[in-house]
Design a protein around this nucleic acid. Structure first.
Length: 472
RNA sequence: GCGCCCAUCGUCUAGAGGCCUAGGACGUCGCCCUUUCACGGCGAAAACACGGGUUCGAUUCCCGUUGGGCGCGCCA
């Protein structure tokens, strides 16, 4: 009876953006924290703008983020008859009325209000008119009769007590002239019917909360508790645009972020308990509360997300990370090419290289990039910095080293290290003077996992081949 | 324009009247470690928007100003 029920209710007019993802996360966390249910509702009453592609993207994004919902997805449009029924009920109770004002009339109303410095709102001209005055051939909308005096008080878990003057709340539309419900009506009816006990949504809905409260009151329904969380801003403090963070969550997957890292980052954006930065999923569920949500908006910072992602990458088990990497390959830059070459041998090499690779990567894309040397075909193409390392003198040193390595019987990181160190000493050069050209010849880069590990992973034949390629 | 919300280092934040010479994290800079890069370690620079109150005492409470955000659709 007192079970907590939360919901995430996106409209499928675009992808699941980062702000929506955080809202979903908070709802999910709250439900988990209280042993409740987390429901998903697609608000597709706007037939013009809702698309199946957007629905798929949202569901896919939720799954990727690991935000599983309970039960079936509710599609709001399918509930239109129920919404109409409630609108009729309100009409019958005298809590709502038919309005025949034309679009042009409404436009004039708004313009006049603006000109006179009043809030642009419906003036209630059909509020008390007799239905017999209805113009012929005009399909009416149904509007709620809202209180004209006094104030509406919202008790919000995040915003506290917020008071709106009722004179600023007009008789808004519940049912459109074509019989379709508006968002305002649908959201109230659905939340009620779905048994939602706690609404957590963006604070762009705060003023809507006051309107919706009047619907609940007109219906005699108990309203869910509210929590309006601040929106996420872009790095410049302005609204999130596609330029900075308002990308679909699939874009974050494509940028190589781990869902666990993104969740942790999102949690800490506008929610905090002391100085603590990292939370595992069970820890987040245990710690999450509405009281610790801030009222001030936070800016999205890719740099910090990246750092956090690096932390998660490094602390991942090699096998799990490899699995995650392979699963994400189709979405990563250069991932498809890598996937095509990933046979059992390469997979084994990749697994062996993982400790050295993950220490140098902040994203899965960097992991892909760093593992490039495993998949490169001889003769390797060297990048500029690597090529610069292979001076004639360095090549001479390498040539000598190559012959010693060729004579090596037991090929291991430890064994090759001995040879390389001995050779450097014999040649009277520092280890780095030999190791760096070696790395350049072996990987084509100046950055890679430890060079002795690279030798071991590549194997004797391939290593010697690459060295001889560069000797010429 | 009207209504509502917000305001601590560049960013995320700690701070709930004296514990603050304002703490942590990311980023930045310097040093160390090192075969490179990265990781890691050490250290540095860096903030209470402004103005009034209240108080013995304000980052913390109140008011105003400024700045930012959101809302004001037969969109959601």
């Amino acid at each position: 009876m007192s079970q907590v029920v939360t919901r995430f209710a996106p409209s499928p007019t675009g992808f699941l953006h980062i702000g929506g993802a955080r809202t979903a996360l908070f709802n999910w966390l709250y439900a988990k924290r209280h042993g409740g249910r987390f429901l998903l509702r697609i608000e597709d009453t706007d037939r013009e703008r809702s698309t199946q592609g957007a629905i798929d993207a949202i569901l896919d994004g939720m799954r990727w983020l690991g935000l599983d919902w309970d039960g079936d997805v509710t599609y709001q449009f399918a509930r239109a008859p129920r919404h109409r029924e409630i609108a009729e009920e309100l009409l019958a109770k005298g809590k709502a009325y038919r309005c025949y004002a034309s679009a042009q009339e409404l436009e004039e109303m708004r313009e006049r209000a603006r000109a006179e410095g009043r809030p642009p709102r419906y003036d209630g001209r059909w509020r008390d008119r007799d239905p017999s005055e209805a113009p012929a051939g005009v399909a009416p909308v149904i509007r709620l009769k809202t209180p004209q005096d006094g104030e509406t008080v919202i008790e919000d878990a995040v915003q506290g007590r917020v008071v709106f003057p009722n004179k600023d709340i007009d008789d808004f539309v519940l049912l459109r002239s074509d019989g379709a419900p508006t968002y305002m009506l649908a959201v109230v009816v659905d939340d009620h019917d779905m048994g939602v006990t706690q609404i957590i949504r963006g604070d762009d809905h705060l003023t809507n909360a006051a309107r919706q409260k009047h619907i609940y009151e007109a219906l005699g329904w108990e309203a869910p508790k509210l929590a309006h969380i601040p929106l996420i801003h872009g790095p410049d403090g302005a609204k999130l645009s596609k330029r900075h963070g308002a990308l679909g969550v699939d874009a974050y997957r494509g940028m190589g972020y781990l869902p666990t890292a993104l969740r942790n980052y999102l949690l800490r954006l506008g929610w905090s308990q002391g100085d603590r930065e990292f939370f595992t999923t069970p820890e987040m569920i245990e710690a999450f509360d509405l009281e610790s949500i801030h009222r001030s908006p936070a800016r999205f910072d890719f740099v910090k997300l990246e750092n956090m992602n690096g932390h998660y990458l490094r602390s991942s088990e090699d096998s799990e990370l490899l699995e995650a990497l392979i699963a994400t390959l189709p979405y990563l830059e250069g991932g498809a090419a890598l996937a095509a070459k990933l046979d059992d041998k390469r997979k084994t090499q990749l697994a062996a290289a993982m400790p050295g690779l993950k220490a140098r990567a902040k994203t899965l894309n960097e992991l892909v990039d760093g593992s490039g040397f495993l998949f490169a075909e001889r003769p390797l193409t060297l990048d500029a910095k690597a090529a610069a390392l292979l001076s004639p003198a360095a090549k001479a040193h390498l040539a000598a080293l190559t012959e010693k390595l060729a004579a090596l019987e037991e090929w291991s990181a430890a064994a090759t290290e001995n040879i390389v160190r001995e050779t450097a000493a014999a040649q009277g050069v520092k280890l780095g003077d030999l190791a760096q050209p070696l790395r350049a010849a072996l990987t084509g880069r100046t950055t890679s996992p430890g060079i002795f590990d690279v030798l071991a992973i590549l194997g004797k034949e391939e290593s010697l081949g690459r060295l001889r390629d560069q000797a010429a």
